[in-house]
Amino acid sequence: MSETSTSARPEWGTLIGIGLTFFAIGVTVNVLVYEHVGSAVKTIAAAGIVLSATSELAYIAVRDVGGSVLAALIAGWVVASRFGLLAASLGTRIQVGHLQRSCAALNCLDPNVGVAMQQTTPKGVITAFWWVTGALHLGWWCGTFTGVFLGNIIGDANRLGLDAVFPALLLAIIANLLRQKPGLIAALVGGGLCAALLPIAPAGTPIILSLTGAVVALKVPEPKAATS
């Protein structure tokens, strides 16, 4: 996740990795969405305007087990509320106009905020954010079209191990945060709490409650070398 010496652009290997991961997500998610929706146009439109694979999957999951439309919508929204938290976090670190700020908000996802927040200057944060956003959009759209139009040929994408790719990428992205004690505590408490609550809490809420990890980590002294 390191910067190059001359710019805040993430290394090409990082961008390619993010693009490949979002290609894999685009394929796996949109094969499922297409099966549920039954329309290529709707599947592609949803991929573009919702821009949250987990929200789409949460909606479908609730409907598939007989849940109401309202319950499914709420599940989709709750799952996406983490993007609001990430947007709030990103918003404190950028100095841009309202148009770019709004565009950034609408594109907030886990990897681009995760990479951007590790930069040391406001310009570096927004530069890294847009580079990663570009890479993930390229992968996501290629994956979406592949999933919709070639899904029958690919078959079960999880057979290829693609469901392990996204968590692996996210882990790589936050690795630098985990090498400092406050970040490690936030991650362990947040991740552990989420895992503990998954079997008992409504869809999406364990991720929101993972915020507790950040609150607990506030009690850990900030490292002297911290730049944020």
């Binding site: 987990t54 983490r82 938290l85 990430l86 709030a88 976090s89 404190t92 886990d110 905020v113 995760g114 927040m117 469901d163 392990a164 996204f166 968590p167 996210l170 882990l171 992205i173 936050i174 945060l177 985990l178 406050p182 970040g183 490690l184 936030a186 991650a187 362990l188 408490v189 947040g190 991740g191 552990g192 709490l193 989420c194 895992a195 998954l198 364990p206 991720i207 993972s210 915020l211 507790t212 990890g213 950040a214 609150v215 980590a217 506030l218 900030e222 944020s228």
Partner: peptide, 19 residues
């Protein structure tokens, strides 16, 4: 400071769920 710790907590939760 809380804002700077949120990505670690929230992204870890997503990792736990996906894993």
């Amino acid at each position: 400071r809380l804002g700077s710790l949120i990505p670690a907590a929230v992204v870890s939760a997503v990792i736990a769920q996906l894993t």
